[in-house]
């Protein structure tokens, strides 16, 4: 059946609620933690930023040029991001050591890029779903309840293009930061793994945005690439979260923070002991 206006609105509501919640928690963290709070100072902030931008991007698309079922496919990603943000704030909270504009720009670019990579991944899943229905001749008697393959592919390419540009900027900034890090690469296996994964994601998206020329990747392959790219990016974040404390990840020098709340969903302050010696490595560079 064609999605009725009521259904469309019903599906938009949780997306809009996710955007509002992410922004609200982000602002709450900014206001409730301490005076020295910096945007993106922890992975939780970054995930909240991704969630908010991703939800707003979906809402904008649905407002200006709606794609049936996009909301439905976006909701699991939003749920995942929220859950991860919750975990990152509650169980694996480690603030970044933000001591330069390079790092801030790197983090912002990586998170923004991740948001659009997520959108491309959602579009890829939607494309495969629509294609599968066409090949299985399912519901052909029903009015189309999905956008055309061409439209979904266009969304995929556009999202991948924006994601690729911002990720490229983030990676370049990460390289600059890495070059200034005196720690030998040999001592940073996690970083090498992270860098490899990030480079793979970048490569996937480089192919994706050139799919008109690399036409062998056109269609379902492009969709799978976008999904795989998003999955790899999530894996990169996971590696960042799992990176052990190294000498190249020093505790924040001005650790006069006494109330750094690891849980954005509650007002309970974390102890300084927990914060110390547990600084998080940014997604694509070692500090």
């Amino acid at each position: 059946m064609t999605p009725s206006p009521a259904n469309t609105t019903a599906l938009r509501l949780p997306v809009a609620a996710s955007a509002a919640a992410a922004i609200a928690i982000f602002l709450y963290r900014a206001a409730a933690l301490h005076a020295g709070w910096q945007p993106l100072e922890s992975h939780a902030d970054g995930l909240l930023l991704i969630t908010a931008v991703f939800a707003l991007a979906v809402l904008a698309i649905q407002h200006y040029d709606p794609i049936p079922k996009l909301n439905l496919f976006a909701l699991p990603v939003l749920t995942l991001l929220f859950a991860w943000a919750f975990c990152a704030a509650t169980f694996t909270f480690r603030p970044f050591h933000i001591d330069s504009v390079w790092l801030t720009a790197h983090l912002a670019a990586v998170y923004l890029g991740s948001c659009f990579v997520a959108l491309a991944g959602v579009a890829g899943a939607l494309y495969l779903h629509a294609r599968r229905k066409l090949n299985r001749r399912a519901d052909l008697a029903q009015p189309p309840n999905l956008a055309s393959l061409e439209r979904i592919e266009a969304l995929l390419i556009h999202a991948a293009t924006v994601g690729f540009v911002t990720l490229t900027a983030g990676l370049a900034l990460g390289l600059v930061i890495t070059l200034n890090d005196p720690t030998p690469l040999a001592n940073r296996q996690h970083f090498i793994l992270k860098l490899t994964l990030a480079a793979t994601v970048w490569l996937f998206y480089a192919v994706l945005i050139n799919v008109r020329y690399a036409s062998r990747f056109r269609g379902p392959r492009a969709a799978w690439l976008s999904i795989a790219g998003f999955a790899l990016l999530l894996a990169t974040f996971a590696i960042v979260a799992a990176t052990p404390q190294t000498k190249s990840n020093p505790t924040k020098p001005n650790s006069n923070i006494t109330q750094l709340d690891p849980a954005p969903f509650s007002a309970a302050p974390a102890t300084t002991d927990r914060v110390e010696n547990n600084w998080e490595v940014p997604p694509c560079a070692s500090s």
Partner: peptide, 21 residues
Amino acid sequence: DAGHLSIGSIAVDFARRIFQR
């Protein structure tokens, strides 16, 4: 009145499921 009954309109419907423009 949803859906199509003539072969021609069904063909057009199929085309619209694949192409946007």
